[in-house]
């Protein structure tokens, strides 16, 4: 019988000042999954992650990591988790390589093996040349990569990434995506929180959305995106138009003389649409999705306040 990488049941958290952060979060993350945990700021994502990784005491509820309860068997549960937190939390006055070797030491890994692993992950994350630099001397992107390397040095089965690419430039972000895919392909389960929804859509297989301390959605990425009944595409035209043409039952809107927007339902095909455009002698230079699909769903869900009201959303 397969065991879930993470199982959370009715997790509640009330802080000492009375703030209720979690009203009852439920999550199931399968082993080997690449899982997106999304939600607006203050939704409870980071509190949930902090409880899973023992940084925050929960009020009630149950959390199991690969079947190990964080209350009954905390050491085993913790040994399986690697955490990349949202904020930098290393000693800025320590050399990069020492941060990794020390972290491995906290997991009982001897210095020799720790040094080998530190080299492996620092090379992978392109930080090897900086190994003797004090952490404070690294750029923002390098600091993020250092935290990823640190989280991997004990080779956890579950890697939790809390906004790992925040503030990272596009080139490095893409190389980090490639690296995360590699880590996931090697068998590590990954939970990702991010505000870049393109990132979640591109990387993750399953998704949960938390809002106001409750899970409002928990499904596969494909199932969620299938709920978008209509996608809007933006077309850039070769020749200017004075008004929107009529092309079958495709709704067209002229944004400016050289730009058209079209809504394509899931029951329709783009081939048919382009055929109709050709008949009207309209030449298309290029096209793009008007918005990221997940982003459009997410925004609508947050606006409408529940998961049931967005299935008819038009992108």
């Amino acid at each position: 019988m397969s065991v879930n990488a993470l199982k959370i049941e009715n997790l509640k958290k009330t802080y000492r000042n009375g703030t209720v952060a979690l009203h009852g979060v439920n999550l199931d993350v399968m082993e080997g999954d690449f899982f997106a945990l999304l939600g607006p700021n203050g939704a409870g994502k980071s509190t949930t992650i902090s409880i899973i990784s023992s940084l925050t005491n929960k009020t009630t509820g149950k959390v199991q990591v690969f079947g190990h309860d964080i209350d009954q068997d905390p050491a085993t549960a913790r040994s399986m988790i690697g955490l990349v937190p949202q904020e930098f939390n290393f000693n800025i006055f320590e050399p990069v390589i020492e941060i990794l070797i020390n972290q491995a030491g906290f997991y009982g890994i001897g210095r020799k093996v720790a040094t080998q692993r530190a080299e492996k992950y620092l090379r992978k994350l392109e930080l090897w040349d900086k190994r003797f630099d004090m952490a404070k001397e690294l750029s923002g992107g390098m600091k993020r990569r250092l935290m990823i390397a640190r989280a991997l040095v004990h080779e956890p089965k579950l890697l939790i990434l809390d906004e790992p690419t925040a503030g990272v430039d596009i080139e490095i972000r893409h190389s980090m995506w490639t690296f995360m895919r590699e880590i996931n392909a090697s068998g590590t389960t990954i939970i990702l929180t991010t505000h870049y929804l393109e990132e979640a859509e591109s990387l993750c297989n399953h998704i949960a959305i938390i809002d106001k301390g409750v899970t409002i959605e928990h499904t596969s990425m494909r199932t969620l995106l299938d709920r978008l009944r209509v996608e809007t595409f933006v077309l850039y035209l070769e020749d200017p138009l004075s008004k929107a043409p009529i092309c079958g039952d495709y709704p067209l809107k002229l944004v400016d003389s050289n730009t058209l927007e079209v809504g394509v339902a899931h029951s329709q095909t783009l081939n048919e649409f382009f055929h109709l455009l050709s008949e009207c002698n309209i030449k298309v230079l290029s096209m793009r999705n008007k918005t990221n699909r997940l982003e459009q769903l997410f925004v609508t869900m947050m606006r409408d306040g529940n998961a049931e009201n967005y299935s008819g959303v038009q992108a």
Binding site: A75, S79, I81, L83, N89, F90, N91, F106, H154
Partner: peptide
């Protein structure tokens, strides 16, 4: 206190260290 202030105490708290 510095470890608390810089939050690098979390390196130990998340580990299985007793």
């Amino acid at each position: 206190f510095s470890a608390k202030f810089q939050k690098n105490i979390e390196e130990m708290i998340i580990s299985p260290l007793p």
